[in-house]
């Protein structure tokens, strides 16, 4: 099953893992949620500031594997400046990219998120990649807690 490991652990993903973007707490957050992957113990705390309906700022803290950390880092870059509706459209497209092998994808919408496409060949790791996105959704919906269960 597994494709070449280098499709999964691309250098740019490893770089996001080593030096995640927006790895910080926000002073002026309007929304936040904590995400858990009970299977592996990954934890993420995500904060965002919504200005009207636009993501003005977003940051995260926590610990997890390279996939979940890089995914959270990429998420913060992708959604900053986006409307909440666009952010959820990205989540939807991202989810399709990881779960529907034959899907025709909107790569303009995905942007840099495409570097996680290799996760589709590793079904046990999909939860790692989507944890940050579930947490973002929970924060926007005012739910406070997200799990990958």
């Amino acid at each position: 099953m597994a494709s070449d490991l280098s499709d999964l652990y691309q250098e740019i993903l490893l770089e996001h893992n080593r030096r995640p973007r927006n790895f910080r707490t926000l002073e002026d957050a309007t929304h936040h949620a904590d995400g858990f992957n009970p299977l592996c113990g990954d934890e993420i705390s995500l904060q965002l500031r919504l200005d009207e309906d636009t993501v003005g700022d977003v940051g995260f803290q926590g610990h997890g594997c390279a996939i979940s950390r890089a995914s959270a880092s990429l998420l913060t870059q992708a959604v900053k400046g986006a409307s909440s509706e666009d952010a959820m459209a990205m989540f939807n497209e991202f989810h399709r990219m990881l779960t529907e092998p034959e899907a025709e994808l909107n790569y303009d919408l995905l942007g840099d998120l495409e570097m996680l496409a290799g996760v589709i060949a590793y079904p046990t790791r999909i939860k790692c990649a989507v944890l940050a996105w579930h947490t973002l959704k929970a924060a926007m919906d005012g739910e406070g807690i997200a799990t990958t269960e």
């Binding site: 652990y9 113990g41 594997c65 390279a66 996939i67």
Partner: peptide, 22 residues
């Protein structure tokens, strides 16, 4: 340098089954 889950995935690619997690 590497989270247990990433180690587990790399070992699996080598045919090695280990448990990773808590």
């Amino acid at each position: 340098s590497a989270h247990a889950h990433d180690i587990g995935t790399i070992l699996d690619a080598e045919g090695i089954a280990v448990r990773t997690g808590h």
